[in-house]
Simulated scan of single mutants.
Amino acid sequence: MSEQDDWEREFDHRWANSAEHKEPSARARMLAARWRENPPDPAPFRADPGPVPRRTSWGSTAVVFGCVIAVMVLIGLLQFGSTY
């Protein structure tokens, strides 16, 4: 047998996909057993998130301006140091 034959036989996806019975994954079996004893509460597909705390735009603006000023100072210091 050639190496190609071994490879095709070992990874024959058509044969695996044509199986009549497919075993569920370990996680699916674990959840099925857990839910059989203690079924989950019904929940909507995407529940509305809780109330989001309101942020002021001033706080975000101050952070952005602070970062811009810090970068400008850093660039200025790097250029000032390279002139000497």
Rank of each mutant, 00 (worst) to 15 (best):
S2N: 13
E3V: 10
E3G: 04
Q4G: 02
D5Q: 10
D6A: 14
W7R: 15
E8F: 10
R9A: 12
E10K: 15
E10P: 00
D12R: 05
H13Y: 12
R14I: 04
R14G: 09
R14W: 09
W15F: 12
N17S: 11
S18Q: 15
S18W: 07
S18G: 13
S18F: 04
A19I: 01
E20F: 07
E20M: 10
H21T: 11
H21W: 11
K22I: 12
P24M: 07
A26S: 11
A26D: 14
A26N: 10
A28F: 02
R29V: 10
M30D: 13
L31H: 06
A32I: 01
A32V: 03
A32F: 02
A32N: 10
R34C: 02
W35V: 03
E37C: 03
E37M: 07
N38W: 04
P39G: 05
P39A: 03
D41S: 11
R46T: 06
R46F: 06
A47L: 02
A47D: 04
D48L: 10
D48N: 12
P51C: 01
P51I: 04
P53K: 14
S57K: 11
W58S: 13
S60N: 12
S60E: 07
T61F: 11
T61L: 12
T61N: 08
T61S: 11
T61R: 12
T61P: 00
A62T: 10
V63W: 05
G66W: 01
G66F: 01
C67D: 04
V68Y: 02
A70V: 08
A70P: 01
A70S: 13
M72E: 06
M72Y: 02
L74W: 08
L74I: 06
Q79K: 11
Q79E: 10
S82N: 09
